[in-house]
Amino acid sequence: MSDQAPKRLNKYISDTGLCSRREADKLIDQKRVSVNNHPPELGTKIGPNDIVKVDGKIVGAVAKDKSDRVYIVYNKPIGITCTTERHVKGNIIDAIGHKARIFPVGRLDKPSEGLIILTSDGDIVNKILRAENAHDKEYEVTVNQPISERFVKRMARGVPILGTVTKPCVVKPTGKNTFTIILTQGLNRQIRRMCEFLGYEVTKLKRTRIMHLELKALKPGQWRNLTQHELTTLQNAVKASSKTAPSN
């Protein structure tokens, strides 16, 4: 294990990218975790010489500077499902085929396409999801009929869905049936539900940006590593995260 201060067992497991802290607690409760070949107590702290195993396999510690973590952006094609469950046909993990154990941050619906972040850093996943309501996500949207000025104003002002009213957002027409929308929240199927409320059906939905991360030249099915500047900016952006919200 790398030379670092002791940390709680669930955080140690989460930091390796295996699962979230909550899921790590479940693994501990299910007696699937051992520390130095003995069953641990909840709250056990892991030091530099401890050996942690999950289902009998050693779980290596994350490097102190997280240099061994993977951070990528992927242009998800239509038809790919944002799940780590490998038995699901068309799952995002098999589609990317990365050698590291990675998982998506949030999700994009199967019929949607565009930018999604994947990482092996469980800690930053939790921070990004908690901070999601404070950061921009931009989409290109096509609907089934010409958009009106009223439609644009109502979308921007907020509409009632899922027992609440969506937050004000930026909506700009780009064509007869197309517009861009910038959200700062991530309700389930939010854009599709907003359009449905106003009598429109989304025929194409593409996410082009999350915070400072953009698709740029990435073609559907392609991915790239975050640059060091992008990663540093991302880490700084989520430092003060506090509120949990599901992704769009």
Rank of each mutant, 00 (worst) to 15 (best):
K239A: 15
N133V: 02
V33M: 03
K99I: 05
T166L: 04
P220M: 03
L187W: 08
D65G: 08
N236H: 14
N75L: 01
V165A: 04
P39T: 04
V125Q: 14
G97R: 02
D50K: 14
L42A: 15
R189I: 00
H38Y: 05
Q190S: 09
L115Q: 15
T164N: 08
M1T: 05
I28L: 01
M194I: 04
D15C: 02
N248I: 04
Q185L: 02
I116L: 02
G90N: 12
N10I: 00
K64P: 04
A5T: 07
G158E: 11
I46E: 07
V238G: 14
A5K: 15
I117S: 10
N144V: 01
E140L: 02
I210R: 09
Y139I: 00
W223V: 01
H38R: 06
R150S: 14
K219C: 08
D25E: 10
G56C: 01
R69A: 08
S34Q: 12
C19S: 05
K53A: 07
K172E: 15
K167T: 09
F179L: 07
N177Q: 08
N126W: 00
R107A: 12
P48D: 06
K176F: 03
I117N: 07
N177T: 14
H98G: 11
C82Q: 06
L27Q: 08
K66S: 11
L108G: 11
P40G: 10
W223M: 04
M194R: 15
L18S: 05
V59W: 01
Q222K: 10
R207A: 06
E214L: 12
T203S: 12
M211Y: 09
T232Y: 12
E85D: 14
V143G: 09
V62C: 11
I124F: 03
V125G: 09
E140P: 05
K172H: 13
P104N: 10
Y139D: 15
L42M: 13
A134P: 04
T142A: 14
P146F: 03
P168N: 10
A63G: 09
I96Q: 11
L129F: 01
E149Y: 07
R22H: 07
M1I: 01
D123V: 01
V171I: 03
L234E: 13
T84V: 02
I128G: 11
K204L: 09
V33L: 00
G17N: 04
Q145N: 12
E214Y: 06
Q235L: 10
G97T: 05
D109W: 00
N248R: 11
K176S: 15
C169V: 03
N236V: 07
Y12V: 00
K153F: 05
P40W: 00
S34A: 05
R130M: 14
L234D: 10
K11P: 08
I181T: 09
T164M: 08
Q222W: 04
L187H: 15
A245T: 12
M1A: 04
I182L: 04
I102F: 02
N75T: 01
T180P: 14
A240D: 14
R150V: 02
N10F: 02
K66V: 00
K206I: 06
D25Y: 03
V165M: 08
G221C: 05
V105L: 02
E214Q: 10
M194T: 12
I116V: 02
E23L: 01
S34D: 15
K127S: 13
T203Q: 14
S20D: 12
L231Y: 07
